[in-house]
């Protein structure tokens, strides 16, 4: 009976956050294995700079942060152009112009991979869902009504080899934005391994001690 109670309680407690996650009725996300190597993230940074950052800000990432994803000092200097080393990455379109063009200021991308369920998968799915519809107009079939025009002209890449190439770029952008949303994730997981390892040892010692002390009662 005790075990039923235990499992009920724990599964019940886990149910709530899971139910939260199920509550979304979002579009189905692409199922891909991301290449999260630093080369991929770095390629993503260049691709994002040349496309996303034309309209979007990346205000929580400063140029100097690029050093963390294996940029060299001179690569950062080229990347930033005239912008200051410690200034945030800003879009090249002013908010006023963007407002006129799109009817809204494009959202900042620093936290996009955290602000959407699915994170990098969401970004990848969004960017690979542009199609030319029957009327010859480009639309996003999974996110209809999105104001962002097909930024990488994915819809027109019908030739398979070039589409594959573009998909690679899109996955690079997705993992770059994933890094931008959580630049401390690598450090966190690394430290986490040690912490959990230490705790397992400590808990085992506590267990031995507890057993030893309680054995006096037998």
């Amino acid at each position: 009976m005790r075990y039923i109670l235990t499992s009920l309680l724990f599964s019940g407690l886990l149910c709530f956050p899971l139910a939260n996650a199920w509550a979304s009725s979002d579009a189905p996300l692409a199922d891909i294995d991301f290449d999260r190597s630093s080369e991929s993230i770095k390629r993503g940074a260049y691709a994002a700079k040349n496309t996303c950052m034309i309209c979007h800000n990346l205000k929580y990432i400063k140029y100097l942060n690029l050093l963390e994803i294996d940029f060299t000092q001179s690569e950062v200097d080229t990347f930033r152009g005239k912008a200051a080393f410690d200034s945030p990455i800003k879009s090249s379109t002013s908010p006023e112009v963007a407002q006129k063009l799109f009817g809204m200021v494009p959202p900042d991308l620093s936290l996009m991979a955290k602000a959407r369920r699915g994170g990098a998968r969401y970004i990848y799915t969004l960017l690979t869902s542009y199609q030319v519809n029957n009327e010859g107009v480009v639309e996003n079939h999974l996110f209809p009504g999105i104001k962002m025009p097909d930024p990488l002209t994915y819809a027109y890449r019908t030739d398979e080899a070039r589409q594959k190439e573009l998909k690679q770029t899109i996955q690079d952008v997705a993992v770059f934005l994933e890094w931008a949303a959580d630049p401390r994730a690598g450090e966190r997981r690394h430290l986490g391994m040690y912490v959990i390892g230490y705790l397992i040892v400590l808990t085992f010692l506590f267990y031995l001690l507890k057993r030893k002390i309680w054995s006096r009662l037998d």
């Binding site: 966190r188 959990i196 808990t203 506590f206 267990y207 002390i213």
Partner: peptide, 19 residues
């Protein structure tokens, strides 16, 4: 002894979520 053993188990689960 018993409470600290329980604390250890709790911390493993807790830190798994944190990290």
């Amino acid at each position: 002894a018993k409470d600290f053993y329980g604390l250890g188990v709790f911390l493993i689960i807790f830190c798994y979520f944190v990290f």
